[in-house]
């Protein structure tokens, strides 16, 4: 392999997980830049210089109009300095180039509200599902058992089965209409689900922390290259991130969340570089 995978994490306006996402990308073998959105809007940095776009967790614009709503609006309408091009335009080119986009938590909310997920029929511009208020009506921080769909096209969860990651959100309930949900299921786009202790998808609180339909925790597009999830993979890349590392000596040094980043980078090395 001659070139390194170049990852970018966009920050600004309330994003707050950019540092640990960059750490996860680097631990998984990528070069990674944390770039403030002002740099992109000023035109000094362009998305096409990268292979792996990370939309990190946080509270874009305080989630004041609903999670990531104002953030999605900015990407759609704010023009790059001195041009009529928007960041949404750059994003569409990035996707068309076969590159990878992963959104975590607020990043997932942003992708869904921009229409990037689940993007049925290859329509990356129209919102077709949403992430809304937890059934509990509250923000919650808790660790969740998850299972990956082995038949999913998702490049990030390839070869993965059970995962254990924290959720930290108030608006994580995945909602879509019956037709959309059916298309998601038949396409195996629900790459990750909340489960009970035995690994069975569950609607029971708190194992399903937000009441997400079909226990959906993460969704990809049909290409499997765009992926968003409410749990935080970047929050479990080291053994000491695990809430029970002081009592479970058999835990490996590397956390399960790192697997998603490794899969992304391996895919890029094979398919894009």
């Amino acid at each position: 392999m001659s070139r390194n995978v170049k990852a970018i994490v966009i920050t600004g306006n309330g994003t707050n997980c950019e540092r640990e996402v960059a750490t996860a990308c680097r631990l998984a073998g990528a070069d990674c830049d944390v770039v403030h959105i002002a740099e992109l809007l000023a035109g000094r940095v362009r998305l096409d210089g990268y292979h792996f776009l990370n939309l990190a967790g946080g509270f874009l614009d305080g989630d004041d109009l609903g999670s990531a709503k104002a953030g999605a609006n900015r990407l759609r309408h704010a023009a790059v300095h001195g041009s009529s091009e928007t960041l949404a335009d750059q994003l569409q080119q990035f996707i068309a180039a076969g590159k990878l986009v992963m959104g975590v938590c607020n990043g997932f909310q942003l992708m869904v509200k921009l229409g990037l997920l689940p993007a049925l029929g290859g329509d990356y511009l129209t919102q077709s599902a949403t992430l809304t208020h937890n059934d509990s009506g509250r923000f919650e921080d808790r660790w969740c058992e998850l299972v990956a769909d082995s038949d999913s096209p998702c490049v990030y969860t390839r070869g993965l089965d059970r995962l254990y990651l924290p959720v930290r959100h108030g608006e994580g309930k995945f909602v879509a209409d019956a037709a959309t949900l059916a298309a998601i299921e038949s396409g195996h786009l629900a790459a990750l689900r909340y489960t009970d202790a035995e690994g069975r998808p569950t609607m029971d609180y708190p194992q399903n922390p937000n009441g997400a339909m079909n226990a959906i925790a993460g969704v990809c597009d049909a290409s499997g290259r765009l992926f968003g999830l409410m749990p935080h993979p970047e929050a479990y890349v080291q053994r000491t991130h695990h809430p029970r590392w002081t009592r479970e000596p058999q835990l490996p040094e590397e956390g399960m969340g790192l697997w998603l980043y490794r899969n992304a980078i391996n895919f890029l090395r094979e398919a894009v570089l």
Partner: peptide, 21 residues
């Protein structure tokens, strides 16, 4: 639980601990 106690991914001993956290 209403406070994010692990953003920045540095919290090694969290406010809740034990066999079921």
């Amino acid at each position: 639980r209403r406070y994010d106690h692990e953003v920045q991914a540095g919290t090694v001993v969290k406010p809740l601990t034990g066999v079921v956290n």
